[in-house]
Design a protein around this nucleic acid. Structure first.
Lengths: 137, 137
DNA sequence: ATCGATGCAAACTCTTTGCATAGCA
DNA sequence: TGCTATGCAAAGAGTTTGCATCGAT
C-alpha cells in the first residue's frame, strides 16, 4: 500500500482526488503510526490550515471502507494508521505516540479447537508499551 | 471474587455499602458477561427504578479502581464484567450479548524476545464471535 | 452528626449529519 | 456542467462533574 494505490482505489470507487485527501494520506504514510482524528488534524493544519475536523472524520470513514487504513482504540479514542501490508499480522503499539512494530506471531495458530458454543468472527492481539522516545520523556 | 469480597474491598477503602452498589454487583455476578453502563442500567431499573445512570458510571469507576470489574470495548462502547478470577487469562467474547468464555492460552508465552525499542506494559488478546444463542437470532 | 452517595442538570469529548457552497472531472 | 467534497453549525452518543440533598455508619 502506497499513496498511488490509495488514490487509485479512491478513484475506482468514484471518490475524487482532492488536495485534502492527499494531505491526509501523506500524513498517514509519513507518520507511520496510530493517530487520532484530532492528531491528524493538528499535523495537517500546521502547514495547511484550510480544512476542518469534519473532513478528517468523513475521509477516515472512506479510507477505512477502502481498507486503506486500519484502526485501534488507544485511551478511549479511535486511532488510525496506514495499512502498510495486507498480510495478517499484529502490532506492538506505543500508547503514548502510537508508534508500531510488527509482530509476526498470531495466537490463533495455537487455538486448535474452537471453544464450545462460539462462532468466531475475528480476534485482536496487541502488545502495548512505550517506544524508546516516549519512555525517556 | 464474589459479592462478599467485593463489599469488603469497598468498606476497606471507606466506600459505603449502599443498596444501589449491591444491586449493581448482583447484576454483574448474575449476568456474568460484558455489559455497557446503559446495559446494567436497563437491567436494574426493570425491578428497581430508583437509580440514575450517573450513579452507574460513578460506581463503575470505583469498581474498576478496586479491581472488582474488568473492561473491554465492544462496538465503540465500554463494557464491564465481574472479574471472576485473578489469574491471568483471556476471553472469547460474544460481540452481541457480551457473553464470555475463558481462554487459558496466553500469546505472551510465545513472545520470547522483547521487540527492539519497546518497553512492554500490557497486552490484549481477545477472540470475538457469536455465542450459540445470539448466532441463531 | 458526619461524610460519603446520589439525582439532577449541565458540561464535555468524540463523532456524525443537514444544508448550502466550493471544487474536481 | 454535474455531482462529490467541504465548512459550518447543530445534533448525538457516551461520559463526567458541580451542587444540593439524601442516606449509611
Amino acid at each position: 500500500m502506497n499513496i498511488t494505490v490509495a488514490l487509485n482505489r479512491l478513484e475506482k470507487k468514484g471518490y475524487k482526488n482532492t488536495r485534502k485527501r492527499e494531505r491526509m494520506l501523506k500524513i498517514f504514510i509519513k507518520e507511520n503510526r496510530y493517530l487520532s482524528a484530532k492528531g491528524i488534524f493538528k499535523l495537517i493544519v500546521e502547514d495547511y490550515p484550510y480544512l476542518s475536523v469534519d473532513t478528517i472524520y468523513r475521509n477516515i470513514k472512506i479510507f477505512e471502507e477502502l481498507d486503506i487504513i486500519e484502526s485501534t482504540e488507544l485511551s478511549g479514542e479511535k486511532h488510525y494508521r496506514f495499512k502498510c501490508s495486507s498480510d495478517h499480522h499484529h502490532h506492538i503499539i506505543c500508547t503514548d505516540c502510537g508508534a508500531v512494530e510488527k509482530i509476526e506471531m498470531c495466537p490463533m495458530d495455537a487455538i486448535t479447537d474452537t471453544p464450545e458454543g462460539f462462532t468466531i468472527t475475528h480476534h485482536k492481539f496487541e502488545i502495548y508499551g512505550y517506544c524508546d522516545e516516549c519512555r525517556s520523556l
